[in-house]
């Protein structure tokens, strides 16, 4: 089908969906890239932390009567603190071992969390209602934009840009960048690198949890939601390259859009297009589009 033969509302709806998915890819790949840079481990627990965020949102409402807005604050804090504990207790002791162990460990953590939730809640999706204040949508002629999706787009992009600025422009960000390059020397310069590592891992987990909260009303809350997303996010990080935070975000949004457009033009390929792009990028430029070549 030709893209330009489509009715505008449908095209627009798909683009919106692409950006929306892209903004989730962005939040997760940002955390993944920062953690990889500093800890040198591929954090397989990232998807589980996202799933945990969505489940926690649902649990807060179901068991404690705390709604979406409360969850938006509480969940990232809980996810961040849990992440810091996981880093301190499980990951840090492996710091001197081969990085493969860290990967296996986080993979194990992901399986345990996911398995636990499957036992407790089954594999079926649990719905979560869109917060009242964000119900409905905006109509521009024939185009209808749901308020909640607009909200998610704006919030996730704001958070990504905010984090990018924090990493590029603040002192703490400079410590993070320096420790990513040469942690030994940074420790000689008086900085508590193990603490920096814990905080960074915690922030990545908090961001994944935050994305989980935002996801709860859109995607159904279920134990495998993280795995499905994480595989795509890995591909996004490979395509973007580990070198650049802004690159990770831009890549995420662009790949979200490409995926959505593929859904219109050739739906059969939509689920693999990102992986095809990943393979091409790996062959042409193994460091990723924004990665450092050196």
């Amino acid at each position: 089908m030709d893209l330009f033969d489509l009715p505008l509302p449908i095209l627009f709806g798909q683009l919106m969906l692409g950006l929306l998915n892209g903004s989730f890819y962005a939040m997760l790949s940002l955390g993944l890239a920062v953690i990889f840079g500093l800890l040198n481990i591929v954090n397989f627990a990232h998807g589980a932390q996202y799933m945990l965020g969505a489940f926690l949102t649902w649990m807060l409402l179901t068991y404690l009567g705390i709604g979406f807005w409360g969850a938006l604050i509480i969940v990232p804090i809980v996810a961040g603190l849990t992440g810091m504990v996981i880093e301190r207790v499980l990951i840090a002791p492996l710091a001197d071992a081969d990085h493969l162990y860290g990967l296996l460990l986080t993979f194990g953590i992901a399986l345990v969390i996911q398995g636990g939730f499957q036992v407790a809640y089954g594999a079926a999706g649990i719905p979560y209602r869109i917060p009242e204040a964000l119900a409905g949508g905006q109509r521009f002629g024939a185009i209808f934009l749901p308020n909640y999706r607009l909200f998610v787009l704006v919030v996730s992009l704001t958070v990504c840009i905010g984090l990018w600025l924090a990493i590029e422009k603040t002192n703490l960000g400079a410590y993070l960048r320096a420790a990513t390059e040469n942690p030994e020397l940074v420790s000689v310069f008086g900085i508590n690198v193990p603490l920096l590592v814990s905080v960074t891992y915690g922030l990545g987990a908090a961001l994944a949890g935050f994305a989980g909260v935002l996801a709860a009303p859109i995607y159904s809350v279920n134990p495998t939601m993280g795995v499905e997303l994480l595989i795509i996010v890995f591909a996004v990080v490979v395509v973007g390259g580990m070198g650049s935070i802004a690159g990770a975000v831009v890549t995420a949004l662009v790949l979200g859009l490409i995926e959505a457009l593929t859904k219109i033009v050739y739906p059969e390929a939509a689920s693999i297009v990102i992986f095809v792009i990943m393979i091409i990028v790996l062959m042409v430029r193994p460091t990723g589009i924004f990665g450092r070549t050196a």
Partner: peptide, 28 residues
């Protein structure tokens, strides 16, 4: 190093992802 030692490593250890200013102000 907090006891009062400044260290200049053999490979100089200038951070490439930091500006000159950030490199300058990094050590505590």
């Amino acid at each position: 190093t907090r006891l009062g030692i400044g260290y200049v490593p053999e490979e100089r250890g200038i951070f490439s992802s930091l500006s000159v200013r950030e490199n300058f102000t990094l050590p505590r």
